[in-house]
């Protein structure tokens, strides 16, 4: 019985470390959770209609009615930030989910099959690597049409190599560990070994890489929105708001461009810290 309580204690300590060990990571998780909640409950939180134009009220400073002032069309900046959280978070999420699904599939297949399959997939991945993501996005936007969907699709493809390369190397080292060998000898089908054993064991690594990619994807998407390829006006989006706020910046009302910029930085730093934190924990556990 004594042994039993001991193992329970060990596990609880692990849980404690998961949430309390790394302060920066805890803070990041807190901030990002807040962002997600804001995005989810935007209609209840926003004090104004984010798209209500009122030219008479353009470029107002901070006031009780408009906490962060208005932009040059007289729209409430705070409301636009709150609604903008939706596309600003959903966009990178789409990129990361797409890149992860594609990248993990490619990486695992390459690692598992080896030989010419590995060579062919690795070369294909390098080919995409050589192609700048933003350029790919512009290309795709010109084929499809400007908007969140085209840019997300393009960036998902552009981010696939990062996920695929990492997954391949992780899967490769996992594949040659005796426990995978043991399952192979048992005669389990490859697919079930991969899904039930290999993937869960490399999942933390994939997660760390995915959350790093989330931050980068956010910057890229904001950049594309800034250039006018991503989210189209009048829809609220942090990247697009910076773009629209350029003029306001020069006219001495910096908040409409600055505020979304600050939020982007917070989110990107948050995701990077989480990614680093997860990766760090894996390194520690491996030792």
């Amino acid at each position: 019985m004594a042994v039993m309580t001991e193992s329970a204690l060990v596990r609880r300590r692990g849980l404690g470390r998961r949430f309390g060990g790394n302060k920066a990571m805890t803070l990041s998780i807190g901030v990002l959770t807040l962002f997600v909640l804001v995005a989810l409950f935007a209609p209840w939180l926003a004090p104004h209609d984010p798209n209500a134009v009122s030219l008479a009220n353009s470029l107002q400073g901070t006031s009780a009615d408009h906490l962060l002032g208005t932009d040059q069309s007289g729209r409430d900046v705070l409301s636009r930030l709150i609604y903008g959280a939706r596309s600003s978070l959903l966009g990178p999420l789409g990129v990361v989910v797409g890149a992860t699904l594609l990248g993990v599939t490619i990486g695992v297949v390459a690692a598992w099959r080896g030989g010419w399959v590995d060579t062919a997939l690795s070369r294909a991945i390098e080919l995409i690597f050589a192609f700048p993501g933003v350029l790919l996005a512009i290309l795709l936007v010109s084929v499809l049409s400007a908007g969140l969907k085209a840019t997300v699709l393009a960036l998902a493809i552009a981010y696939t190599p990062y996920m695929a390369r990492m997954t391949r190397s992780a899967a490769l080292s996992e594949r040659h560990r005796p426990y995978i060998r043991a399952l192979e000898i048992q005669g389990f089908p490859a697919v079930s070994i991969i899904v039930r054993h290999l993937l869960p064991n490399i999942a933390p690594l994939v997660l760390a890489q995915a959350s790093l990619c989330f931050g980068y994807a956010m910057i890229d998407l904001a950049g594309l929105s800034f250039l006018g390829f991503g989210v189209q006006p009048p829809q609220a989006d942090w990247g697009a708001m910076i773009s629209e706020g350029q003029v306001a910046l020069l006219q001495g009302a910096p908040l409409s461009a600055l505020a979304p910029g600050v939020l982007i930085v917070c989110a990107v730093v948050g995701f990077s810290l989480i990614g680093e934190g997860v990766a760090d924990r894996i390194r520690r556990a491996d030792r």
């Binding site: 005796p178 426990y179 043991a182 399952l183 000898i185 048992q186 054993h197 869960p200 064991n201």
Partner: peptide, 23 residues
């Protein structure tokens, strides 16, 4: 592989490596 497994089984050298750590 399955036919073989029902005839012959292997026990590996390293007991720390031959089991799935998550199972």
């Amino acid at each position: 592989r399955r036919q073989r497994a029902r005839t012959v089984q292997l026990v590996f050298q390293d007991p720390y490596q031959s089991l799935d750590p998550r199972q």
